[in-house]
């Protein structure tokens, strides 16, 4: 099996590669179109800012490449957000794979809500093969200021003052807002589930 991690101007690629290594999988980090197209599994990671990441993808025509992929694709954090329709982060048009928009957390009362959300939060209403043997209310590690709204593609819900999509799925495309590569054994299980699709 060939597992590719899409290389672009966003962080945490190393962490994803190490998480794969810990379960005995070699993740190839590449921005080569043919390598990506020929992979069995594609991981689209991301820590960074939406508009610069989208500009980078467009410049290398990776935006269309990702949209056209037929094999299972897993977006992580910013990767997931870029797979949505639109992000409020610098008013960015995204890939439009998931039927959700990305909005900024807003504190209902000053200082009630710390932004970014940093830490472990639980995932609920799990319904996807991605969560096989992952119990309801499992804790995952989140670091983000923007969130994907609930919608038809929501496969997991998390609450941070409001309920939002902590995971999305549309056909062969999967996305998680949290960092499975940093979420201890529960996160590792999700990565394994993705690789087993």
């Amino acid at each position: 099996m060939k597992t590719v991690i899409v290389k672009y101007n966003a962080g945490n690629i190393r962490s994803v590669q190490f998480a794969l290594e810990r379960i005995g999988v070699n993740g190839i980090v590449t921005d080569n179109v043919e390598e990506i197209r020929s992979a069995d599994k594609v991981i689209f990671p991301g820590v960074g800012e939406a508009s610069t990441a989208m500009a980078y993808l467009k410049e290398r025509k990776l935006d269309q490449v990702i949209k056209d992929l037929q094999q299972p694709v897993l977006g992580i954090c910013l990767g997931m957000q870029l797979m949505c329709k639109h992000s409020e982060e610098n008013d960015t048009e995204c890939l439009g794979i998931f039927d959700s928009n990305v909005k900024k957390f807003e504190s209902p009362v000053a200082n009630l809500l710390k932004i970014p959300q940093i830490g472990w939060n639980n995932i609920t209403n799990l319904h996807s093969v991605l969560f096989e043997h992952v119990p309801e209310n499992s804790y995952m590690y989140f670091v983000h200021s923007y969130y994907a709204a609930l919608g038809a593609d929501t496969i997991a819900i998390t609450n941070y003052v409001i309920n939002y999509s902590s995971a999305l799925q549309k056909d062969n495309f999967y996305g998680v807002q949290f960092h499975p590569e940093k979420s201890a054994t529960a996160g590792s299980r999700i990565i394994e589930n993705f690789l087993n699709i």
Partner: peptide, 11 residues
């Protein structure tokens, strides 16, 4: 740091 990242599965 590289070795820590390789072996530790939390932030």
């Amino acid at each position: 740091v590289t070795e820590i990242a390789r072996h530790v599965n939390i932030p």
